[in-house]
Amino acid sequence: MIAAIGLVVGILLGLVLTPDVPQWLEPYLPIAVVAALDAVFGALRAFLDGIFNDKVFVISFVSNVVIAALIVFLGDKLGVGAQLSTGVVVVLGIRIFSNVAAIRRHIFHA
C-alpha cells in the first residue's frame, strides 16, 4: 500500500512541479528510468515468489540505475553512446518482459 502511494505521490509531484531535466542528466535519465522499471518488476516478481527483501530491493534499484547510467556515460566517452544506450534498453526490455511474464504466471496462472 505504501509503495503504491509512493508511486502515485511521485507521479503527482512530477506532474505538478514539471521540473526541467538538467543538462548533465539528460542522456542518463531515460536509461535510468528503464533500469528502475526493471528493478521494480524484479522486486514484484520476488515478492510473489515469497523471497522479497527490502534491502535487496533498494540495493538492486540503486545499482541498476547507477550501472545503467555508468554504461551510458562510458559509451559516451568511448564514442558509442547511442549504440550502448540502445543495447542497455534492449537488455533491460528483455528482462522486464521476462519478469512481467513470471508475474503474470503468478497472478493469472497463464
Partner: peptide, 28 residues
C-alpha cells in the same frame, strides 16, 4: 496492499522516485 508494513517504506520512496523521474522524462 491492505496491510502496509515498514519494509514497504523503502520501496515506496524508490517507487516515488521512479514515478517522478518517469513523468519528468516524459515531460522533457
Amino acid at each position: 496492499l491492505r496491510k502496509p508494513s515498514r519494509s514497504q517504506l523503502a520501496g515506496a520512496v524508490l517507487l516515488g522516485l521512479l514515478g517522478f523521474a518517469m513523468v519528468t522524462q516524459v515531460n522533457s
